[in-house]
Nucleic acid binder design. Sequence first.
DNA 1: AACAGTTACAACCGCCTGTTA
DNA 2: ATAACAGGCGGTTGTAACTGT
Length: 265
Amino acid sequence: MVKSASIDKNGIRKGSWSIEEDEKLRVYIQKYGHWNWRQLPKFAGLSRCGKSCRLRWMNYLRPDVKRGNFSEEEDNLIIQMHEELGNKWSIISGKLPGRTDNEIKNHWHTNLSKRVKQNQPVSSEVMNKEQSSESSQSEVIQTKKSETDSVSVNTPSESDHQQKNVENFPSSQEISCSEFSSMSNDSVSGMNSVAEDSFSSMEIFQDSGSDFWNLPFLADNNYNQDGYESLFLTEEGYMSFYASNYDDDGTYWIQQVLQELEGSN
DNA sequence: AACAGTTACAACCGCCTGTTA
DNA sequence: ATAACAGGCGGTTGTAACTGT
């Protein structure tokens, strides 16, 4: 269901993400945050462009991403908001905690747009039928996914690899922002050396004039120290940010939004 | 069982906007 | 004022999985 992995002419991996890549990205962001998407893949040891990393995190790896079938309330809200706003998926996703714009967009194109075209009233009977058949499928997918996730976490070689990458960065608990901003070049080059293992052929990118999103962070010394000052978000702070934006199933928010929409009509 | 058609969704691409120097 | 950068958005594509014949 995903694009097969490939490597483009610049040595950038494209296509489906492997479990190892997911784990590298997840571990890195949970530890350091996404301080700079362009530079992140290098420090995380990923042969991906920053844009690809951002998308993977936002649409798949983020801890608050809710997966599985859409509830009737969610469907109704999407249809109603799409009537009002059109294809403003990011705004719509903002009203559906745990749902990404990509997911909503896909769901719209594969299910809801047809339903709307056919002018089918959203009958709860039909919905329940559909959902029960859908859920049986998605449950299988979910089970498979969670299985692979747990396997990846427990793979020793995988965790060793992550450990290797992460160890070279000072932990967020170990170093303050001010301390880091005055880090020695040795420390920084130590970090760079991590990525150099993965990007030893970085020179090939230097003559590329393509869009910056497609390029991994070039191994130069002109790093922006200011940028690093916001690097070390604590994991707790990061997680609490997300946690504060949604409740368990998002039902409360959906009710609120539906009320708002009804009120504005 | 084999093949064709359809569906679902992860991922890519190009463009736009906001920020910064 | 403006150019470059960084992040974000929406449209589209590719393909695994599913369904029908």
